[in-house]
Amino acid sequence: MTDPNTPAPARPLPPAEVAALAARVLDEVRTAVVGMNETLPIALATVLAGGHVLFEDVPGLGKTLAARSLAGALGLDFARLQCTPDLLPSDITGSSVFDPATRTFEFRPGPVFTGLLLADEINRTAPKTQSALLEAMAERQVSVEGTSHPLPSPFHVLATSNPVEYEGTYPLPEAQLDRFMVRLAIGYPDPGQETTIVRNRLARRAEAAPVTRVTDPATVLAMQAGIATVEVDPDIVRYCVDLVTATRTHHALEVGASPRGSANLVLVARALAVIEGRDHVLPEDVKHVAVPVLAHRLTLTPDAWAQATRPENVVTSLLNTVPTPTTVRTGP
């Protein structure tokens, strides 16, 4: 049996091929999901950059459908976890079962042993269970009863959370939020898109919207390796670091973004650039992903919080104040 944590090193795909595959994945997802033209490429870029995605918006906007369709099109093993207040850590990680015949304990892996885990309504579960996911997301392994079990690769978490419902919700702690590479808000579709959604539902005559598989886990790994071959201009790296550093001195923020924030900013911007068919990163890519990558890592001061300041607005204001690099090469 091969160790799933150390797969055979994937042959990196050239960026152009990655872009073509990503376009096909997005097209396939769009057969099921209407709208989300902004969010879907960022979600895919995050997965291809090796990160985890948090969808946060009001119910009924298709967060779960988007996550499920993305998993289907990418061809990853998919497991869904409905988070409830009484969900126990062992319900996620798996637990030992006693076998009376052999008088031994046998480990039964939980839903976390999959390629793409959809944690639905993650903020409805208790902090103890949320933190069980933390180790899985950060270390790509779970420790059950003193033994570490590595998770398969690729392993990505797409979580959804609901900001409105406050009864019986446990806001994700900052440490847990930092583990998510991006937090995406979906927003309401425009009337045209909403009409399409209703028509599609009527034409489908079923709730589920199946998507065709475009890639497989090995291809996803190869795409990830292909993106990793793309170089990033030092000016872009400095721009990302400047943006993140500016969050640490902003007057409305108590805690700014971590160095993990600046690293993730570069990684998502690069993946997005490759998806859009470029082999170099532009400052516009960084600006495009700055709000999803940084906003959830910021902690407002109680004063700013009480005055209903939003971290998204803080990031937007920083994008307008931090000088954009101009010396970046604009073409090959």
Binding site: Y166, Y170, E254, T299, P302, W305
Partner: peptide
């Protein structure tokens, strides 16, 4: 919304 922790206390106070 209901929460605990010192930061939440500061938010409540504000």
């Amino acid at each position: 919304p209901p929460a605990s922790g010192r930061r939440h206390l500061r938010r409540l106070t504000h």
